[in-house]
């Protein structure tokens, strides 16, 4: 991509060199790039199983670059469902990126078009997790590019492995490669639970997503996510979570400790406590 693209040197003074920031982003993303390998293998092998050619299977990862949408779409192709339904479902699954883009807007929209297009294309759940560090950290596009591009390459290599394996190994689907999705997202979500309102948000989203999945409600992901976000905001408002923080800086760390222990308590009682 545009790693050698010239850019005003005085605009992003946070890092001494672009290469350093790029490398830093690559390293920050590394755990997620490794974790996405089983998932990529699943995407490649499943595409072959559904009946796509190796080129088409690779093109899904190279051009669409959206794991959840790819896997769901492949499942629908396998079930013989038509293109329009696949596209509407894709729209539902991918709509979360609208939220990510909105959250990143203040940081990315002032950049030149090439940067916007590139980072827009690379804006995955994982890139959002490492690049959207809030206002405390200065946003560096080279850092984001390093994270996003290395993740893109990792995803495509893993897909290729899956295509090769899918041609060679029977019943790859029964290995449970989809657990990789769960493990990755749990590792991403747990550290974000820094205050009680986020815990509320996660629990509401989790419960509704499970209920919707059990009842095969197609829009479950959207319903659960929006309800979870709303619940988090309302909880923060009712308990005046943020005001406490402003009034007393010490309360901030106290709140974090609370969320931490609550989450832990929750984890140990997860099977019973959820539904």
């Amino acid at each position: 991509m545009t790693t050698d693209k010239p850019i005003e040197p005085d605009v992003y003074p946070a890092h001494p060199t672009k290469a350093k920031a790029f490398l830093k982003g690559t390293i920050a993303m590394m755990p997620l790039t490794i974790a996405v390998v089983p998932w990529g293998i699943l995407a490649g092998s499943f595409a072959i199983e559904v009946g796509l050619t190796p080129i088409e299977s690779q093109a899904m990862s190279a051009i669409i670059f959206a794991g959840a949408a790819q896997l769901v779409a492949l499942g629908m192709v396998k079930a013989g469902i038509g293109l329009w339904s696949i596209l509407i479902t894709t729209l539902l699954i991918t709509s979360r990126h609208l939220l990510y883009a909105m959250a990143m807007r203040s940081q990315i929209s002032p950049l030149p078009l090439k940067w916007r297009l590139t980072l827009g294309f690379l804006l995955t759940d994982e890139l959002f997790a490492i690049a959207n560090q809030g206002k405390l950290h200065k946003f560096d596009p080279w850092y984001a590019l390093g994270g996003g591009l290395s993740f893109y390459i990792g995803w495509n290599i893993a897909t290729l492995l899956g295509i090769v394996a899918g041609n060679a190994i029977e019943n790859l689907g029964e290995l449970g490669l989809d657990f990789a999705i769960a493990a990755t997202f749990i590792a991403l979500v747990v550290p974000t639970v820094k205050k009680p309102s986020i815990l509320v948000c996660v629990l509401v989203s989790l419960s509704l997503a499970v209920v919707c999945a059990a009842f095969e409600i197609q829009a479950g992901l959207l319903i659960a996510a929006i309800a979870g976000m709303t619940a988090g905001v309302l909880y923060a408002k009712i308990t005046k979570e943020d005001e406490r923080k402003i009034l007393n800086p010490l309360a901030n760390s106290q709140t974090e400790t609370d969320a931490h222990s609550e989450r832990k308590a929750d984890a140990t009682t997860q099977p019973e406590g959820k539904i």
Binding site: V202, A224, M229
Partner: peptide, 22 residues
Amino acid sequence: QTFLSYSAPAVLTAIFAPIVFV
């Protein structure tokens, strides 16, 4: 902006929860 700050945990949870529980 406050609403959006809850997007990542909510969306990621809504994706992984059915894989785990259903």
